[in-house]
């Protein structure tokens, strides 16, 4: 048995017992991921480390093709890690945890085209053992939260791109996640829709007090949305730096974006990402 295996065997219970009070909501410890084995294998992520506290909004930015999506899939338990670990409340993530929901970038591919909006939202709830009335309640509540109460019986492809992504968000909200993972959810939307959805997301997060991990390649978006930004360096992907974003809890598209701190942060992170891409 290799050292790695021993570490994962004995390391986790020790951490769980030792420091119960300081356990972060979400933690990434020495996480590495490669596709394939041997010389043909491709190392995508190397020994990545960061933490997310409960209620925090963390953005992950980095050059394109650096493995952000792979990282999110490891975090959500969809992909097995090669070594190291991702932890939720100090517990290793081996399969999709039930307190987590994932919103994908491509809304046209993440909503089932053969199901109406109603059935798309209800699909994840069908096996949670909820009563029918509770499911109905959550459906209506979550669609109201994203401002789409009147499209229940439409098919996703009958809606605009922004509305489809709202449906995907409503599906996540109806699932009542404590942690929301989002993979460039607004990347294929036009600028105005994106601003609206960014504000919607900030509102929802404040009201529901959920933890958000948000992957994006748009640096302005990451500064506008987050409490903290994890900057990733180029392939294989590693943590380059972690930047706090002290812009307060209420933000405004016009005001926040015109503040001096905003542009300083923006410049700082842009420089960091560019330097990371060169290495």
């Amino acid at each position: 048995m290799t050292n790695e295996n021993l570490a994962t065997l004995h390391g986790r219970p020790a951490a769980a017992q030792g420091q119960t009070a300081a356990i972060p909501r979400l933690a990434v410890r020495d996480l590495s991921k490669s596709y394939g084995t041997g010389p043909a294998g491709k190392e995508v992520i190397r020994e990545l480390n960061f933490e997310v506290a409960a209620g925090e909004f963390v953005c992950i930015v980095g050059p394109s093709g650096v493995g952000k999506t792979t990282l999110l899939k490891c975090l959500s338990g969809l992909l097995p890690v090669t070594s190291g670990e991702a932890l939720i409340d100090g517990v290793r993530i081996c399969e999709p945890p039930k307190e987590m929901a994932l919103v994908f970038q491509d809304y046209t591919r993440s909503l089932m085209p053969w199901l109406t909006v109603e059935k798309n939202v209800l699909l994840p709830l069908r096996e949670t053992g909820l009563r029918r009335s509770e499911m109905k309640h959550r459906l209506q509540e979550s669609l109201a939260q994203v401002g789409l109460s009147d499209v229940l019986h439409k098919y996703p492809w009958q809606l605009s791109g922004g509305m489809q992504q709202r449906v995907a968000i409503a599906r996540a909200l109806a699932y009542r996640p404590e942690i929301l993972l989002m993979d460039e959810p607004f990347a294929s939307l036009d600028a105005q829709t994106r601003f609206d959805l960014e504000d919607l997301l900030l509102t929802l997060r404040r009201e529901l007090n959920i933890t958000v991990v948000f992957v994006t390649h748009d640096i302005d978006e990451s500064v506008y949305l987050s409490d903290r930004i994890v900057v990733l360096g180029s392939a294989p992907c590693r943590t380059r730096e972690i930047v706090d974003v002290p812009l307060g809890s209420t933000r405004n598209q016009i005001e926040t974006r015109s503040r001096a701190e905003f542009s300083e942060l923006r410049t700082h992170i842009l420089t960091s990402v560019k330097a990371g891409a060169l290495n």
């Binding site: 959500s76 929901a101 994908f104 089932m112 199901l115 699909l123 994840p124």
Partner: peptide
């Protein structure tokens, strides 16, 4: 992506077969 959506929401494999793969 559809399969991943279903997996991330912990949809059971039987339901995945009949409400995702078959349609």
């Amino acid at each position: 992506t559809l399969g991943e959506v279903a997996r991330s929401y912990r949809v059971s494999s039987i339901r995945r077969l009949f409400s995702i793969y078959l349609p």
